[in-house]
Design a protein around this nucleic acid. Structure first.
Length: 425
RNA sequence: GGAGGAGUGGCAGAGCGGUUGAAUGCACCGGUCUUGAAAACCGGCAUGGGUCACACCAUCGGGGGUUCGAAUCCCUCCUCCUCCGCCA
C-alpha cells in the first residue's frame, strides 16, 4: 500500500496518479478521507498515550507508597487509575475502529503509476513499447490451433484433466510432458546464468503472505482458499518468493537481491469461458518461472530494463515473434507502478498471447511487507520487482502453433538439448 | 495423532509482579593508542507511533485476561525441540 506520509506530503501527485487510473473526482475523495482519518488517528493516539503515561506514573507511585506503608494515599491513586483505565478502554476501542477504517481505505488505493504510464482505459490503449520488427509469420489456412495439434500428437489431454479434477486442469503426456519439463529447466538455467538464485518455495501460503504481496484483499476471488487451515494456493510464484524478506531489514550492500523460482500457479479465473480461452489460453493450473528482485530505490528502473532484456532474450532463443507493451493506467495492475507485458504472436490463432508481465512495484509491496534497508542512519523501504520468465502454458501453445509443419512440430535449437528430441511427430 | 519441554534485541543468554526497552558476552559502527593491523580502553548500537527536537506511548512468538502495575501470573493459538505412533 502507499505510504501514509507520502500520501500526506504529495497529495496532488497521488491524485494525479489516480486520475491516470481513471479515478473519478468523486472517487478521488478517498485521498482526503484518508488524511482526515489519519488526523483522527493521531489525535486519538495522542490522547490515549497521555492517559497511559499518567497511569504508568501513578502505578509507579503506588508501588512506592505501598512500600513505605502509606496505604491510604495508595488507595486514592488506585481509584484514579481505575478511572483512567475506563477512559483508556473506550479510547482504545475508538482507535482500533479508526485504524481499521484507515487500513480499509488505504487498501483501496492502488499504486501511483510511473510518469511514463499512458492514460487509457482498456488493453487497446496500451502503448507498443517495442514492436516486432520483422514480418509476422503466416500460416496456411490448414494451420491447426494448439488444442488440435495436441490431439494429433497426443501432447496434452484436457478431457482427462477434467475427469481427474475439473475444467482448466490440463494433463500433459508423452512429448508434451517432456516439452513442458524442458521449458522449465531451460528458463531456470537461463535465470541462473543471469545471476538469479534458484528458489523452490511452498506452493501454499498463509494469509499474511497473500496480504503482503497484494493478492489480499484485492484479488481474493482469484485464489483457491483452503478454509480449514486458512491457507491459499499460490496464484504466482511471486507470492512465496517475495515474502522471503517480509519484515526484514537489509543492509545497502545486500542489493541487488535476485531470485528465481519455478512454481505451478493456481487461478480460479471465475467465469471465464469461451472461444478466447480454449485450449491452454487460460487454465486454472499452469507452470511458470518467475524472477523477483529487491532493489535500492535509485536503481529499480535500471533493474526493470535488465529484466525486460532477460525475458526478451528468452523469446529470442525460442525464436518466437513477440512485442512489448507498456500498460496504460486502466490495464495496470493494482500494485504496480509500471508494467511491461510481453505478447507472443500465435500464427495459427492469429492473435497475440500474453506470456509475461514485468513490473516495478516501487515501495507498494515493501510497505505492506515491511521490507526495508539501512540507508546510512535511516531505514527506508526497498523497491520490489518481478516478472514472468516465462509463463509456460501459452509459450507451449505458441511453440506448437508457430512451428507446425507437414512433418511435425519443430523444436527450437535452444531447447533440443533439454527435450532430447528435435521434432514432435 | 499422543506425552513432555521451550519461545527474550543480529546471535548467545540473564531476568520469572514495581526506574527492565530489558543485565552480560559476542558481532557490528565510531574514537583513543599504533608506522599499519591486532590487543586494550572509551562511546554508540531494536522497531514502530509521536515531536522542530525532546518528552511521552507501544512492542520480550500472536491474540485475550488477571492486577494500581506483567517479559514475569492465567487462558488460547502458532512455532520449535525431545520421546512414542504413523509415513513418502
Amino acid at each position: 500500500m502507499l505510504e501514509l506520509n507520502f500520501l500526506r506530503v504529495n497529495t496532488e501527485r497521488v491524485k494525479e496518479g489516480l486520475r491516470v487510473r481513471n479515478f473519478s473526482d468523486e472517487a478521488l475523495s478517498i485521498v482526503d478521507d484518508i488524511i482526515n482519518l489519519d488526523d483522527r488517528r493521531k489525535a486519538t493516539q495522542t490522547e490515549l498515550d497521555s492517559l497511559l503515561a499518567e497511569r504508568n506514573t501513578l502505578s509507579r507511585e503506588i508501588g512506592q507508597l505501598f512500600k513505605s506503608g502509606q496505604k491510604d494515599e495508595a488507595e486514592q491513586k488506585r481509584s484514579r487509575v481505575n478511572d483512567i483505565k475506563e477512559e483508556a478502554a473506550s479510547l482504545e476501542e475508538a482507535l482500533k475502529a479508526i485504524k481499521t477504517e484507515l487500513d480499509e481505505a488505504l487498501y483501496q488505493v492502488p499504486n501511483i503509476p510511473h510518469p511514463s504510464v499512458p492514460k487509457g482505459s482498456t488493453e487497446n490503449d496500451n502503448e507498443v513499447y517495442k514492436a516486432w520488427a520483422e514480418a509476422l509469420p503466416e500460416m496456411g489456412s490448414d494451420a491447426l490451433p494448439h488444442w488440435e495439434l495436441a490431439q494429433k500428437y497426443n501432447l496434452f489431454d484436457l478431457e482427462l484433466g477434467t475427469k481427474i479434477t475439473g475444467s482448466g486442469f490440463p494433463l500433459y503426456r508423452g512429448k508434451g510432458a517432456r516439452l513442458q519439463r524442458a521449458l522449465i529447466s531451460f528458463f531456470l538455467d537461463e535465470a541462473n546464468r543471469a545471476g538469479y538464485e534458484e528458489i523452490l518455495p511452498p506452493l501454499i501460503v498463509n494469509e499474511d503472505s497473500a496480504r503482503a504481496t497484494g493478492q489480499l484483499p484485492d484479488k481474493e476471488g482469484q485464489m483457491y482458499h483452503i478454509e480449514k487451515d486458512g491457507f491459499y494456493l499460490i496464484p504466482t510464484g511471486e507470492v512465496p518468493i517475495t515474502n522471503i524478506f517480509r519484515d526484514e531489514i537489509l543492509s545497502e550492500d545486500d542489493f541487488p537481491v535476485k531470485l528465481t523460482g519455478y512454481t505451478p500457479c493456481f487461478r480460479r479465473e471465475a467465469g471465464s469461458y469461451g472461444a478466447h480461452v480454449r485450449g491452454l489460453n487460460r487454465v486454472h493450473q499452469f507452470d511458470k518461472v518467475e524472477i523477483v528482485r529487491y532493489e535500492h530505490p535509485d536503481r529499480s528502473y535500471e533493474a526493470l530494463e535488465e529484466m525486460l532484456a532477460h525475458v526478451g532474450g528468452l523469446l529470442d532463443k525460442l525464436e518466437l515473434p513477440y512485442r512489448i507493451l507498456r500498460l496504460c493506467g486502466g490495464d495496470l495492475g493494482f500494485t504496480a507502478a509500471l508494467t511491461f507485458d510481453f505478447e507472443v504472436y500465435s500464427a495459427a490463432q492469429q492473435r497475440w498471447l500474453e506470456v509475461s508481465s514485468v513490473s516495478n512495484f516501487e515501495t507498494y509491496q515493501s510497505n505492506r511487507m515491511k521490507l526495508r534497508f539501512k540507508d546510512g542512519k535511516s531505514t527506508r523501504l526497498a523497491h520490489t520487482l518481478n516478472g514472468s520468465a516465462l509463463a509456460l502454458a501459452r509459450i507451449f501453445a505458441a511453440l506448437l502453433e508457430n512451428n507446425q509443419t507437414e512433418n511435425g512440430i519443430i523444436i527450437p535449437k535452444a531447447l533440443q538439448s533439454y527435450t532430447g528430441f528435435d521434432l514432435i511427430d
